[in-house]
Every structure is written in C-alpha cells, then in structure tokens.
C-alpha cells in the first residue's frame, strides 16, 4: 500500500451545496390536488365501505404530495427578491398548506375546490416571477 493511501482519510465530510435541477411548476401540485378533488367526488357517490376506506387512504397520500410540491416551490423556487413582486407570498403558501391539511381531514368538495383555487394563486405568483420561460425546459411538442 502506498504511503499516500495510508494517509488518506476514511471519512468524507461535505462542504454542502445544493444542486437544484431548477425545474419548477405548480402544475405538479395542481395535478395531485385535482386527484384529491376527484377522489372526494367518487367517495361521495359510493356507499361501499371498502371503497370509501381506499378513497380516504389515497386522498391522504395525494394530499401529502400536494404539500411536498408546494414546499419545494416555497423553499427552493421562490427567493427573497420575489417578495417584491408577490408581497403576500408567505401568507399564500401558509394558507395553501393549511388548506391541504383541511382536505386531508375532510370529505367536502368545497374544501378540495378551495385548494385548487389557492394553487392557482401560487401558479399566478410563479408566472409573475418568471414562470415557464425560466423553470421549464422548452421544446415540448404542443
């Protein structure tokens, strides 16, 4: 074994920096929220207890994904300088995340609809601060 190998540390420490892909789109959250909406619809139309249990389970899963996607936008995409263009940004994300919690706990279509509306507001904020041109790869066939 070479002397250098002997000297080499066995522990690696990271001087950590992010490597974000830079791809963001509220559509991801919106699709999961639409799933929640549709699941609530189906839940209300079906009396079968097994079906209803499954529906609730899946709704909670999807709602968790909504939260995740909202958080990624909030923490990673939006930067302090965006607050000038969207002064109510933090309130908006707070409200949207709270609404997800509500959708998790309820089977009301109104709640699910309200979540969609809030995500549309996030979408508007995303568009004001750069939107598709900045955060999606261009060239997808229309």
């Amino acid at each position: 074994m070479s002397p250098l190998r002997l000297l080499a540390p066995r522990t690696v420490v990271r001087a950590h920096c992010d490597l974000p892909c830079g791809i963001y789109d509220p559509e991801q959250a919106r699709i999961e929220a639409e799933s929640c909406y549709r699941i609530v619809e189906k839940y209300l139309a079906n009396e079968d207890p097994t079906f209803r249990t499954r529906a609730i389970h899946i709704k909670e899963e999807r709602a968790d994904l909504v939260k995740h996607h909202l958080d990624v936008l909030w923490h990673d995409y939006f930067k302090p300088e965006h607050l000038e263009a969207v002064p109510n940004l933090h309130q908006l994300f707070w409200d949207a995340n709270k609404q997800v919690s509500k959708v998790k706990a309820s089977t009301s279509l109104d709640d699910a609809r309200k979540l969609l509306d809030l995500i549309d507001q996030v979408d508007a904020a995303w568009k004001t601060t750069g939107g598709e041109g900045k955060t999606r790869v261009a060239g997808r066939p229309g």
Binding site: L7, A8, P9, R10, T11, V12, V13, R14, A15, H16, C17
Partner: peptide
C-alpha cells in the same frame, strides 16, 4: 474521526474539495 476528506465546494476558497 481524526482525518477527513472534503467533498463539494461551499467552503471555497479557504477549503477546497479534495483537501484532507
């Protein structure tokens, strides 16, 4: 650990990736 190897760049310029 008594010895460590550094990965990644967030301590540049004082400590670089690959420093022991």
């Amino acid at each position: 650990p008594w010895r460590v190897a550094v990965a990644e760049a967030s301590m540049t310029p004082s400590i670089l990736a690959g420093d022991w």
